[in-house]
């Protein structure tokens, strides 16, 4: 290529743009000064303050509960949908399913949140359930939109996968469920763990949908962050944000390394 310097400049500019704000956020969480932008020396004061903030801690606990339950349910649902789309050919309703799975990926959050809330209100009027809105309604809403992401990931992995492995197992007399559990599932483990992690972070991160479908009792972490951010920048939020970043990043790196090792093992055993 004739112009590597141009692409190199754009790449470094792009990565600086992506990571600059995040790094500054983490750096200022260790700032002694209350003013977020004046450096007053290194301190872990805001982390200690964070650990004594009852409101943030209870909201974080609720969010973590919702996020992990959501990730498990979304993986199951996404596995079903992804498997149907990738393996069952042109069944009746395929276009319907594929459209419904694709739409939540681009649908604006406000529309998703409002429509879910109106569904829950109508359900309550008709069946008397759910009586109060809170953890359950947030969970149902989150499963729906994060399962769409899981489906996309699982489907693409299944499409790329070598079908002859499954066919060979079936030729040798394995029942479909056995084929799925012993052949398909181990091969798509990377996609499933990526989907779980993504569903977890999507739920942990969602403000808009949760605000719509939540009730008086259900205040999640993003809601607390949002209301305190509206009042102004606070170093406690910086500390909280850094902790979330640490949690998510280490989760991604650990799964990435594990999957990398597994792939290497598979390759060597194939040889």
């Amino acid at each position: 290529m004739r112009r590597p310097w141009f692409l190199f400049t754009m790449l470094s500019f792009g990565y600086a743009f992506l990571y600059g704000p995040i790094i500054s956020l983490v750096v200022y969480s260790f700032n002694k000064s209350r003013l977020v932008t004046v450096w007053g020396g290194f301190s872990t004061h805001w982390y200690r303050e964070l650990l004594h903030d009852e409101q943030i801690l209870s909201a974080a606990w609720l969010s973590l509960k919702i996020a992990s339950l959501n990730a498990c349910l979304a993986v199951i649902l996404g596995l079903f949908a992804g498997f149907s789309l990738a393996r069952f050919g042109r069944f009746r309703g395929r276009g319907f399913l594929s459209g419904m799975v694709g739409a939540p990926l681009v649908m604006p959050d406000v529309i998703l949140g409002l429509s879910m809330l109106l569904l829950f209100v109508a359900m309550q009027q008709t069946f008397g359930w759910p009586q109060t809105r809170g953890m359950t309604t947030i969970l149902l809403a989150h499963v729906t939109f994060s399962a769409a992401y899981v489906t996309v990931i699982v489907q693409s992995r299944l499409v790329d996968m070598d079908v002859s492995l499954e066919e060979a197992a079936m030729d040798l007399g394995a029942r479909p469920w056995k084929v799925f559990l012993l052949i398909t599932l181990p091969v798509i483990v990377p996609a499933i763990s990526a989907g779980w992690l993504l569903a977890f972070t999507l739920s942990l991160d969602d403000l808009v949908i949760a605000s719509f479908v939540s009730g008086p009792g259900g205040t999640t972490l993003p809601m607390v962050v949002y209301s305190s951010v509206r009042l102004g920048v606070s170093p406690v939020i910086n500390a909280l944000a850094s902790l979330i970043l640490l949690l998510v990043t280490s989760g991604i790196i650990i799964t990435g390394l594990l999957l990398h090792r597994q792939e290497k093992l598979q390759k060597t055993s194939e040889l």
């Binding site: 704000p21 500054s24 200022y28 972070t201 991160d205 939020i237 910086n238 944000a241 979330i244 998510v248």
Partner: peptide
């Protein structure tokens, strides 16, 4: 990583 946090970073 969190969308809200990334928007918050720009406020600072």
């Amino acid at each position: 990583t969190s969308f809200l946090i990334r928007v918050y970073a720009w406020i600072g």
